[in-house]
């Protein structure tokens, strides 16, 4: 296989063992090109979130080689969208001040920060009640707040852990649209964890199928369906079914 560019995400022979004996990730190797959207699909407990924490630079305790843009995961400006938005928003702040949080490292004034947020949300086409306390937002709005907060700092790398898991379907399409727009505008390389194949096929360029615990990559599929993708497109349905079959067969 010929490559013109070094992959953006390089994971080589990654192992992760909890408490000395419980193996979670077993020899995982994967490559993701710059600007690519990759999905990690697998059953619950297969180490998807663990892998995400490692490439996001939160979990530093692993064996193997992990490089993001040629650097160690900790050195990369990574945007993280965790699974549970309630656990990550700061409930004592209102919406806009939650979104400004990553920028506060730089020590801008509050007014400047808010202006940046308003400008940014306009560009991304995200509408949110900015002055409302976050606990008053709906689930979809909370998730949008987390996504906006993650992207405001112009991350080089975006990781998302089940960003749709706690949303109903109307919110799903709303947020999927926002993400597509963001990817068009920023071309940020993204790793997305999901246990839903429709999500995976709808959004990603490449899908890694994981086996049940300990997590191992059993199959890797490039998705080259034309944009915009539609869930009712026969080709789309066929792809989902095909991957479902591959997954059930254990990647054969």
């Amino acid at each position: 296989m010929q490559k013109t560019e070094k992959p953006f995400v390089e994971v080589n022979n990654l192992y992760k063992v909890y408490d000395g004996f419980s193996s979670v990730l077993d020899n995982v190797s994967l490559e993701i090109a710059r600007g690519e959207i990759a999905c990690i699909f697998g059953p619950n407990g297969c180490g998807k979130t663990t892998l995400l924490k490692i490439i996001a630079g939160i979990d530093k305790d692993y064996q193997g080689k992990v490089l993001i843009g040629g650097k160690s995961p900790i050195e990369v400006r990574t945007g993280i969208v965790p699974q549970d938005y309630d656990m990550t928003l700061l409930p004592w702040r209102n919406t806009v001040d939650n979104i400004t949080l990553p920028l506060e490292v730089n020590g801008y004034s509050r007014r400047v920060l808010r202006e940046i947020v308003v400008e940014f949300l306009k560009k991304m086409g995200i509408k949110l009640p900015l002055l409302s306390p976050v606990y008053k937002l709906s689930g979809g709005q909370k998730q949008l707040t987390v996504i906006a907060r993650t992207l405001i700092n112009k991350p080089e790398f975006l990781v998302m852990d089940e960003p749709f898991a706690s949303l109903d379907s109307s919110h799903f399409f709303q947020i999927a649209d926002v993400l597509k727009r963001i990817w068009n505008l920023t071309e940020v390389s993204t790793v997305l964890v999901t246990h839903d194949l429709v999500t995976a096929v709808l959004l990603s360029d490449q899908i890694f199928l994981f086996s049940p615990k300990p997590g191992r990559i059993v199959h890797c599929e490039k998705i080259s369906l034309p944009e915009p993708r539609s869930v009712s497109d026969p080709l789309f349905v066929e792809t989902v079914n095909y991957l479902q079959g591959v997954f059930l067969m254990g990647g054969e």
Binding site: A56, G57, I58, R77, T78, I80, P82, M87, T88, L90, L101, P102, E104, V105, N153
Partner: peptide, 21 residues
């Protein structure tokens, strides 16, 4: 919330800022 602390810390905040924020 440990997870919240870890996540905000990963944004690059110093320990002192983390304390107050």
């Amino acid at each position: 919330n440990r997870w919240r602390v870890k996540l905000v810390r990963r944004m690059g905040f110093s320990r002192r800022r983390m304390l107050f924020k």
